[in-house]
């Protein structure tokens, strides 16, 4: 239902043209959990930006539910990599932002904010301003801000990248629990292969820039999955090894 058809994105700088995404064709099925992996700077973020409507593809089309999309799409939530909590709002006011836009009654907003802030472990930090939170806490608040309005599709750009290992596992579990319940479509960019395998139905491996699809790997591990358990399991490790082989050449190119 989210279809990229021959999508390319080029940026023009004063000196040269940079191709960030190169003829990507990809179908993401409804209610699937899809992870993007690939060398850093390869153009995964640009692809997400295009899906969210922040960037127009230079060629190709993006369809959502079969309809051509230009500009912003309310049904797609996006947790960007850049920090975008509003500094003049408290954590709770930031998290409740989308509900405010929907003009929900105050009591319902408060109740849901409370629930989602507990979910990301920030229950006691509702009245803190972003500058009073640590980097990891700000990431989690940003997640709650998108999760709370339960968009049909959620794009997430390395949401757990800045978190320590324990917190990351715990957040993965929260995310999977949430997803088992509301079954949104999720596109999740990560560097962490084990994370991708733990979470995803499909892992899409990208080449180094410009981003082309190198392989799509279906992960058949049974659900519901428990990240604590399977993170270090043999199955996950062996799929990671497989993915790593695909990535290795690309990484070598990037480093050179």
């Amino acid at each position: 239902m989210l279809n990229f058809n021959d999508v390319s994105v080029e940026f023009e700088t004063t000196q040269s043209k940079i191709v960030a995404v190169d003829h990507v064709t990809l179908d993401i099925q409804k209610q699937n959990f899809v992870c993007f992996v690939g060398p850093s700077g390869c153009g995964k973020t640009t692809l997400l930006n295009a899906a969210a409507g922040l960037v127009m593809p230079s060629t190709g089309t993006i369809r959502y539910d079969g309809q051509l999309r230009k500009g912003f799409n309310k049904d797609i939530g996006y947790v960007t990599q850049t920090e975008t909590l509003f500094p003049w709002r408290t954590a709770a006011e930031n998290v409740g932002l989308a509900l405010e836009l929907q003009n929900l009654p105050r009591s319902e907003i408060n109740e849901r904010v409370d629930r989602y802030m507990s979910l990301v472990g920030l229950r006691n930090f509702q009245d803190h301003y972003p500058r009073q939170l640590s980097g990891g806490m700000r990431r989690r608040a940003a997640l709650a801000r998108t999760w709370i309005y339960e968009p049909e599709t959620v794009l997430m750009d390395e949401p757990f990248g800045a978190l320590d290992e324990q917190l990351k596992l715990s957040m993965q579990k929260q995310l999977l629990d949430l997803w088992e319940r509301n079954r949104s479509t999720i596109v999740f960019v990560t560097h962490d292969l084990a994370e991708a395998v733990t979470l995803a139905d499909q892992v899409v491996v990208f080449t180094s820039r410009p981003a082309r699809i190198k392989a799509v790997k279906t992960i058949d591990l049974p659900r519901p999955r428990d990240p604590y358990r399977i993170h270090f399991s043999k199955e996950v490790q062996s799929i990671c090894a497989e993915l790593w082989e695909l990535l290795e050449d690309e990484l070598r190119e990037t480093v050179q």
Binding site: S118, L119, V120, G121, N124, F125, H128, R131, Q132, L133, S134, G136, M137, L163, D164, Q166, L167, L169, S170, Q174
Partner: peptide
């Protein structure tokens, strides 16, 4: 949300105020 929480709580800072 049990593990990691304690660690992150101590990470709260507000360099200007406290």
């Amino acid at each position: 949300m049990n593990n990691g929480n304690a660690a992150s709580e101590s990470a709260v800072f507000d360099s200007e105020r406290s």
